[in-house]
Amino acid sequence: MVPLSWYLILSGILFSLGVLGFLLKRNIITIFMSIELMLNAVNLSFVAFANYWHTHPVADKSIVPLSGQVFVFFVMVVAAAEAAVGLAIIIAVFRTRETLNVDRVNLLKL
């Protein structure tokens, strides 16, 4: 059986990749994708942890370890909503600035 730590390390790597993508990419859409990557990395953790707690039941019976898997759906829903709104905003930016290069979106500063 694959140990929990592997999942967690993978999740951490994915999350870091998301962060790096945000930092290094210039296209707004790509950056947005990086954020999605970060969220999905988190989802991976959730699932991994849910599985872990499923096999290691806790004393407090009111805790429902399966909830971890449910959370993933919530996160996905939220991510979808974010995507909808985000893309709308990106379009608005494109309309006013006619570019998707994030480095050129710097009217407001100092």
Partner: peptide, 22 residues
């Protein structure tokens, strides 16, 4: 400016929310 404000808020907000979620 308003659009820029929104995109900045959105991107950075989501970025930070991801940390929270993690």
């Amino acid at each position: 400016g308003s659009a820029e404000s929104a995109i900045k808020y959105f991107l950075l907000g989501s970025f930070a929310t991801a940390f929270f979620l993690y």
